[in-house]
Simulated scan of single mutants.
Amino acid sequence: MTERHTTAPAATELPRLTPGPRPRRPHTVLAMSLETRDALREEGAIDLLSETADLDPDLLVTDFADPSAAEALTRAEVLLTHWGCPPLTERALAAMPRLRAVVHAAGSVKHHVTDAVWARGITVSSAAAANALPVAEYTVATILLAGKRILESARAYREQRAAYPLLPYFAGHGNYRRVVGIVGASRTGRRVIELLRPFDFTVLVHDPYLDDAGAALLGARSVGLDELTRRSHVVSIHAPQLPETHHMFDARRLGLLPDGATLINTARGSLVDTEALITHLTSGRIHAVLDVTDPEVLPAESPLYRLPNVLLTPHIAGSLGSELGRMADYAAAEISRYARGLPFAHSVGPQDLARTA
């Protein structure tokens, strides 16, 4: 269930370019959506990438069969990808005979890296470690807000516009000595645990690839998934989307959540049975923070839009705005390493995809 873990830098640290003589600038082509390229340009990330790569920021490939991109793709040594990159099929790769590396300035590569990439011996890097940081920050913020019952208290204050008895209202809530369950010791899950250390929480973690000693090093206790669900006041999901994790929170497991518990999902919507979750939420027994859903986007008539015990956000936990610059920093550092003949610091291989998001 866990992602292949490489120790991510602390939130205040950025990858550093290797000191020494200025390396060559490999010919690099941008492959992503127009919206993504423009967002990167707005944050100054394209300028940073241009310092380490020989790229034309105005040349954007959204279709590898586009004749106007043929000459640039023929010369491409590095493909800099991001959200909206088309699939790198065998046919697409045939147009890039010199391609040696794919540097993904975002998280998962599953959407565009195919078996043909590995068959060609092309190396792949991902900025998933950078994207994990804002997801973890969002998660910790919502954990703390869930303990304060922000949705209910804000709604009650708005409706009553008068003082109401705080102590009876908040009985059984708060953030002192609460149990937080982390499902998946992924990059994000580990960062969440790290960020929770200053608080007075008991942290449980479930991950089939994490033993008791590994959990203890993180500052958590390893338990089975059902036990974690039964004991936790807040359960936060950080597992990858795999066949074995589909609907891991089904009607039975959702029923194990204590009354008043909060389920947080910033991973993938398919990990939770949406209809079963709606049933539990409609009863008012539990609460939910949902940054991802199944389907995504939900139909307009979905009760999740209007239920008072649901915080529903449109997949904003990951990198947005200035946070795109962090992922670009990672990508620039990887291109610099490639240019110097060094291995990627954040490489991805075919063996990793069976355990990553």
Rank of each mutant, 00 (worst) to 15 (best):
Y176T: 15
A105N: 05
A76V: 01
A130T: 09
M248F: 13
A70V: 07
A10N: 10
R100L: 03
M1A: 05
A119D: 12
P57A: 11
A213G: 07
L144C: 11
E42Q: 14
R252N: 06
V78I: 14
H27N: 01
V183Q: 03
S283R: 15
S50A: 15
I150K: 06
S126G: 15
I237R: 02
G325C: 13
D63P: 08
T52A: 11
T279W: 02
R197N: 06
D63Y: 12
H5S: 04
H246K: 10
P343Y: 03
P57C: 07
P350I: 08
A116I: 00
G260F: 03
T142G: 01
L228K: 02
A156T: 15
V102A: 00
H173A: 09
V61Q: 08
Y209I: 04
V103G: 02
L99K: 04
P350V: 06
A156C: 00
A328E: 05
V192P: 05
R337Q: 02
E152I: 03
P97S: 10
S153M: 15
T114V: 04
I237A: 06
I264M: 14
A128N: 07
L40P: 08
T62D: 06
E159P: 07
D38C: 04
E296M: 14
Y305A: 09
L59A: 14
M1Q: 10
F199A: 12
A317F: 11
P240Q: 09
I122Y: 00
L256Y: 11
R253W: 06
L242H: 02
T245F: 08
L48K: 05
E227A: 12
R16S: 09
G20I: 14
V292I: 11
E137P: 06
T18H: 15
G121S: 01
D211I: 05
L133W: 06
R253N: 03
G224N: 00
R98C: 01
L49F: 06
R253A: 03
S336Q: 15
G321V: 11
T274H: 07
L55S: 05
D38K: 12
V183C: 09
L263D: 09
K148G: 09
I278N: 08
P134K: 04
R190T: 03
D58S: 11
N175K: 10
E323C: 06
S153R: 14
R252Y: 05
R190I: 14
A129R: 11
V135H: 12
D66H: 09
G321E: 14
A220T: 02
A300D: 12
A154T: 11
